[in-house]
């Protein structure tokens, strides 16, 4: 059973890890994006349609990232160029994503896509337990596990990352060095949206291999919460994403084993877990937040 839960946590956690990584980038630059949920939905539907139409799931994933980035661009423009409130705009962008995917996804419900399958990595996948959990997954899951350290390196070891973090901590210093906080933030928010779209793509083309309206069920919002859990650190984001998906996998296992508790109540548990974790960590996280974010909360 433990192997089942761990396997489910990793398989189901990919669609959360990408948006957590994306939101980490955006928030490190000083912008909170509650439109992540909308970007995920847009990514899920676009990847699905393109995957079905072209027969190439990789093209689908790329298109999904593009769709997520497009919605994030709307958020960036509203917040950075038009000075609109970040929280309100983010929700409106999510609303836009819900509406657009309902409008364009109607005919695609239940069509089914020949999506990403598991690709076992030779030798490594033979290791007991760990092999199946980590090395017998779909390609996007491997990509997400490579993306986390890559983004960590980018943020904390590269010059570009230094500028990005400066935009989130001390934009005046970046400005004094001839940089443009606005430009950096645009790039960060759009890149974050692309990652959220990729997360949505994994959900529809690798995890469920189907499209249904509102299929993300708040994963984009959960991602924003998990960024705080992960202390704006891409490596800890892995743990955050698998915490939520692990709770889902555990809940599914308990159901399969005939637990008496209603499945609907069990489904609520992962959300309560995230709220509880935030409640425990929030004080400790307050001083770790990028300084510019403090103005939003």
């Amino acid at each position: 059973m433990i192997e089942q839960v761990l396997y489910g946590a990793v398989r189901g956690g990919t669609s959360l890890l990408f948006p957590v990584l994306g939101e980490t980038i955006a928030e490190r630059a000083g912008v909170i994006n509650l439109g992540t949920e909308g970007s995920m939905l847009a990514g899920a539907l676009t990847a699905y349609i393109v995957g079905v139409q072209t027969g190439s799931v990789w093209l689908g994933a790329l298109a999904g990232a593009g769709a997520g980035a497009s919605l994030a661009l709307v958020h960036a423009f509203m917040v950075l160029t038009r000075g609109a409130n970040q929280i309100a705009t983010g929700l409106v962008v999510t609303f836009l994503g819900i509406g657009l995917t309902a409008l364009f996804g109607q005919e695609w419900v239940g069509v089914g896509v020949n999506g990403f399958g598991a690709v076992a990595i030779p030798v490594l996948s033979q290791i007991p337990v760990v092999g199946r959990v980590l090395f017998d997954q779909d390609p996007l899951t491997y990509l997400s596990l490579l993306a986390a350290p890559a983004i960590w390196w980018l943020l904390f070891r590269s010059r570009a990352g230094l500028r990005l973090r400066a935009a989130g901590e001390r934009p005046d210093v970046l400005l004094a060095h001839g940089g443009s906080p606005t430009l950096v933030r645009y790039v960060a928010v759009v890149a974050g949206g692309a990652l959220a779209g990729l997360g949505g793509a994994q959900l529809s083309t690798a995890f469920t291999r189907d499209w249904s309206e509102g299929m993300t069920v708040g994963r984009g919002f959960v991602a924003v919460a998990l960024v705080i859990f992960a202390a704006w650190n891409p490596l800890r984001a892995i743990g955050g994403a698998y915490l939520f998906s692990g709770a889902i996998a555990l809940q599914l296992q308990l159901q399969a084993r005939g637990w008496e508790l209603s499945p609907y109540l069990l489904q609520a548990a992962p959300y309560l877990l995230v709220i509880a974790v935030l409640a425990v960590l929030s004080r400790r996280r307050a001083h770790q937040a990028p300084e510019a974010l403090a103005k939003v909360f």
Binding site: M78, V92, G99, E213
Partner: peptide, 19 residues
């Protein structure tokens, strides 16, 4: 069309007004 499509109009109105 799906009735939820009107959410698009609401969102666009809000974007126009907020921005």
């Amino acid at each position: 069309l799906s009735g939820a499509a009107v959410n698009v109009l609401m969102a666009l109105v809000l974007l126009a007004v907020l921005g």
